[in-house]
Design a protein around this nucleic acid. Sequence first.
DNA 1: CGCCGGGGTTACAAGTCCGTGACATGGCTT
DNA 2: AAGCCATGTCACGGACTTGTAACCCCGGCG
Lengths: 234, 234
Amino acid sequence: MLTPARIMPKILVVDDEPDALEVLEFNLKNAGYEVSTADDGEAALKKARQLLPDLILLDLMLPEVDGLEVCKLLRRDPATSGIPIIMVTAKAAEIDRVVGLELGADDYVTKPFSPRELVLRVRNLLRRRTEGEDDKPQKMQFGDLVIDIPRHLVSVAGARVDLTATEFKLLIILAQRRGRVQSREALLRDVWEYDNLIDTRTVDTHMRRLREKLGDAARYLDTVRGVGYRFIEN
Amino acid sequence: MLTPARIMPKILVVDDEPDALEVLEFNLKNAGYEVSTADDGEAALKKARQLLPDLILLDLMLPEVDGLEVCKLLRRDPATSGIPIIMVTAKAAEIDRVVGLELGADDYVTKPFSPRELVLRVRNLLRRRTEGEDDKPQKMQFGDLVIDIPRHLVSVAGARVDLTATEFKLLIILAQRRGRVQSREALLRDVWEYDNLIDTRTVDTHMRRLREKLGDAARYLDTVRGVGYRFIEN
DNA sequence: CGCCGGGGTTACAAGTCCGTGACATGGCTT
DNA sequence: AAGCCATGTCACGGACTTGTAACCCCGGCG
């Protein structure tokens, strides 16, 4: 997979109780995050802008400027408005109020929390932001052939075609690289994921099964003699 | 946000009365849309597949293949199933019938309509599709299966079904992502919250228990061999 | 015109995947 | 302490998938 060089996510923790701060910091560092802290609203806002953390853990009760206010301000500033926020609160009852206010936190944790729960929520939220957009289209159409990757669905002229997992993967790889010829070796590597052991004729067999099931739409699958296969658009 | 270069939304208008067609076309072009037309069901289906418009305005009364039928066919073909449809009809009374049929139109307009109303509805529908999907509904219904998340309640044909916490979570994750296949790994990550330690076969067992408890409604839970599970609506 | 090699086609044995029932564990209630 | 229930794991068996080998066809080339 094309995993981009992993960097350590940066987290800003805001809480005015030293004890709570320490617990949070310890657990997050343990889980492999880079942690900065702030113990009041003003410092939080300043650090958020300076550090641009990947996530902010914000206690609801703060002296001076309270958590809700900080949250709103963070959301208002374009520099920080995209940063996910997890609200932390001692009172479960507060949660409802906060949720009711819909002021833009992305998740909530109540004290006391288990370290596991905390880390899970953090990870979830970070993942959601990171995974985001991918480059390859998830749905493709060529004439009457439709390929819908998330639904794992292929249809020809509106009629659904049932493909096995391997056939589906083969078709996707070819369609995504349409125009370019793929050697049997390349296909084995990318569809079968690095099984150097299997015969290259295996590709042929799967191409045949794929063509059979696609019927009319098999015309998109082109054999280049002596080289491999390719997907042609017209 | 990664807004793709804005293009002019393409709208397909289907109506067999030349006058009505002209009025619709004029108003939509005036509002800045690219408009194509069709005057019978067959042409509509063909053009929809060819042009892949962003929205379809469909008159209920058409010669040969009527609007309802066209609507159903558009929905059935994966190529066009995601395109929003606005039904147009001369008789207000027809609306109820159509709504009752729940056949998948997204909005309804009755003749005579004000140009302003028409454009508003079009704009609304286009906006809804452009801005990411609507946030997750808290209560869902599919045929006789009702899932109420806040109340933690599931019923089939009116009869309450007792699910354990895990089963419930599994069901709602699948239902919220209905249509899209979820791999065992994805389910472990999101239902079990990232316990990499547990066996992927555990998912199977829980699916089995879920299906058993759902009885009839288990038909919504689909196995995609070699890939994972998915929730299907029909 | 016949040979040759690459690829289409068919058949089948081995492998894989999933539904199913059984069981161990461990937390919670009584 | 006993019992119950939720949950994770395992083993079995049937159905489907997949890799391979054998055979056939066809086009290119001498």
